[in-house]
Design a protein around this nucleic acid. Sequence first.
DNA 1: TGAGTCTCGGCAATCGATTTCCGAGTTGCG
DNA 2: CGCAACTCGGAAATCGATTGCCGAGACTCA
Lengths: 338, 338
Amino acid sequence: MAEGLPQHALSRPVTMADVAAHAGVSVSTVSRVISAARPVAEPLRDAVLGAAAELGYQVNLVGRALRKGRTATVGLLVPDLDNPFFSSLAQHLSTAFEGSAADVLVFSTCGDLRVERRGVEAFLGRQVDAVVMIPCHESESVDSVRLAAHSALTIQLDRQVVGADVHFVGCDNAAGLGLITTHIREHVDVDDKPVLYVGAKTLSSSGHERFQQFTQNFPDRPTYLGDFDFAWGQQAVDEILSDGHTRGTIVAAADIIGLGVIAGLHVRGYRVPDDFRVIGFDGIGVARFAHPTLTTVRQPVEEIGQTVLDLVSLPRSTTPSRSVRIAPDLILGDSSPG
Amino acid sequence: MAEGLPQHALSRPVTMADVAAHAGVSVSTVSRVISAARPVAEPLRDAVLGAAAELGYQVNLVGRALRKGRTATVGLLVPDLDNPFFSSLAQHLSTAFEGSAADVLVFSTCGDLRVERRGVEAFLGRQVDAVVMIPCHESESVDSVRLAAHSALTIQLDRQVVGADVHFVGCDNAAGLGLITTHIREHVDVDDKPVLYVGAKTLSSSGHERFQQFTQNFPDRPTYLGDFDFAWGQQAVDEILSDGHTRGTIVAAADIIGLGVIAGLHVRGYRVPDDFRVIGFDGIGVARFAHPTLTTVRQPVEEIGQTVLDLVSLPRSTTPSRSVRIAPDLILGDSSPG
DNA sequence: TGAGTCTCGGCAATCGATTTCCGAGTTGCG
DNA sequence: CGCAACTCGGAAATCGATTGCCGAGACTCA
């Protein structure tokens, strides 16, 4: 016999009052049993749990939230779920919170400042305990970040806006470029083969930091700046070739750009890594699917998720805003073998 | 001078009562101005809006939800945000709802039945107006789906469980395989080169339907069943080769498998499409990044999102559960050129 | 036995917004 | 001028759960 959902006569949703009436106790007792706020004597507890099961009672978290002022919810704002790196970050943050009492809810800002603002208001209005956000834009997102930080514990993820003194958790981009630099110096004669940088116009702090660190480690090398996407990587190849380069090492600011570079080189008949080595950044899963597989600096998304969990779990009193930089590691692929 | 956030003396969050006091009106009036529930005379309205702005008032959606019984929220349950197809679906659903009054909140079930259950309870407890879910499992998820459908408008997305009479929106898999079949018959001498299927063990309805349709369109062809991932695609190549096949057309049940197949063929020294043609299913963005680019059946994610929006916007009264199948289209890549 | 301490169930206030009902003031119209 | 209809602000009930307080009963200990 298939167990159905509990059938109760009410079309109205079941409340604690219903359970209380059915069990012959007061609502306070029901509440104390359900939320385990205070011990309740065995027989009464059984009666309450029995009644609750029988009626198919489900806690109304809205009522609870209104009273407690907390919601056991973390709101995550992401610019674009279709971007593999962001969605991987979202997944790993969810995984990190799996064992915690809080639920992670994700909202996509669609890379739009107005939607981002709406998302912040949606989360704050729903009284989330913490807002975790990857800001859309290095400078324009500052109002949204400030608004969030004004009324909830707020953590910036992966990118940080300028001018807001708000927690930040992200990758140590300088260290990442350090790994790339060491790798290149160990395996390439940089005087023989040029090192080139294909990055993104710096409307995010990550793009900014990586570009800055590259130019510091490799002064006066050719750099190409476009968008954070595949198409730009392809296009950059044409610019590189028309500048007369026929071999070298291409450092891409993101894997998605690096994949575009590899595809562009394929189309133009150049071989990777024989003619051009290619190195990416981020460590997105699909980088392993490329041919050749992409050598990349992997951001430790698990550790980033765990760090956010720790920061959220910390007592709210720790007012000074913290900036946590997680060290990345180098994943060797065939696009720039070790 | 930089505009800061409104500074008010209260450390307590600003409520309608505060706004009312500051504007010298009653809370009813404030409510009516804020939610535009009834017209309010010009001077009073200005006073209220002024006071609200001055105090930095933000609606408390928890209070509103408790009273109204609605939340203007759609909850989306996704098995794994790290899966490009699911995250793309999530992104496009968000985009479809951008113009609507409702916010889309996403929860990752991490492919785990218990987490899926928790997600359903999280959304129902938060009184979402609708639950949209991609069930984890063809049969085991039935309890969660039923639970959701019992107290909220529920729509199954992409996959449907057996035994629950609940709305469904997804791809017309039979039509998709029809496109593949036509494409193959037009461009391949199927008597000369074998047609092979690399699919997934059927724990999802999509996998099930695609497999069934393949065997119907191409009876008695070799089929290989594993998981819905890249690694299985690579491994399947070895099985295919050890079965003595050296050329043919490989139909993959999902792009992620197809990409694995292409990678596996590369490693073994076979050429695509010269030795083996490869055709995928889903139309994930990264399929265009492969080399060669993957020929695939694209699920129209925009249209799927729009359909869900329509279904949610429909008056609740339309009780008979609907099953909407959206027709996919064929995207020609170089892995099986036209 | 009596005073002090504990345990634990119930009453009622409370969280913040919405909404029904009421009534005062205005307008319209015969 | 008088009555009906209408407009619109305010008082208070309401949504569902939590929790401070009270008090009844049980227990401890001298």
